[in-house]
């Protein structure tokens, strides 16, 4: 009995996403186009709700502007919203679409000191997620709109400019922290 014997391992009962609830945490890294230039985007979000169906979502992150010679910019989007998640057939592949509203905190280090601005920020993330057990990978396209176009000028010349529209493409991992059967809905 080289492998020995032991208690019988029982496979966990598969979760039915239609009735399962979860808390999902994710970390995503990618880029965000603001027409020009392309920023480095780091996004983290937490979602609470149905695995298949609606979830509430809170997100934050960082957008790092690459040209840091004169203006060293970090934008921090923070927002709340809702996500609708759909499962493709029986595969652990989900697509989701969301809508969040929040703020975009702009912070720029310059020779004149730190400049801060806060703008309203809307996002509509589209995400593909592949989940095995409680860990998965996500690929998301995140169009967003922060209302104000921002320009830094030096001696009459534009040295930094970002459009109010941005489109992020991010890839990362997610963890479903809690997965359990949802309470039975009342008829």
């Amino acid at each position: 009995m080289p492998l020995g014997t032991g208690p019988k391992v029982v496979s966990p009962e598969p979760v039915d996403p239609a009735v399962a609830r979860m808390i999902r945490l994710d970390y995503l890294l990618g880029v965000a186009w603001r027409i020009e230039p392309v920023d480095v985007a780091m996004i983290t979000s937490i979602e609470y709700g149905q695995m298949k169906g609606f979830s509430g979502s809170f997100h934050t992150g960082m957008l790092l502007s690459p040209d840091r010679n004169i203006v060293r910019v970090v934008d921090v989007p923070i927002g709340l919203g809702a996500v609708y998640r759909h499962r493709f057939g029986g595969r652990p592949l989900y697509a989701s679409v969301g809508l969040t509203a929040g703020i975009l905190v702009h912070r720029a280090g310059t020779d004149l000191g730190v400049i801060r601005r806060v703008d309203p920020d809307l996002r509509a993330p589209l995400r593909l997620a592949w989940t095995v057990e409680r860990v998965g990978m996500s690929l998301a396209l995140v169009p967003a709109f922060s209302f104000r176009e921002r320009t830094y000028e030096r001696r009459g010349a534009e040295v930094w400019k970002h459009h109010s529209v941005r489109v992020g493409l991010v890839f990362g991992l997610h963890w479903d922290l809690v997965v359990g059967r949802a309470n039975r809905r009342r008829p």
């Binding site: 703008d119 104000r148 176009e149």
Partner: peptide
């Protein structure tokens, strides 16, 4: 706010 320009002068 939409379409507003935020121009910051660094001089």
């Amino acid at each position: 706010l939409t379409g507003c320009q935020d121009v910051i002068n660094l001089d």
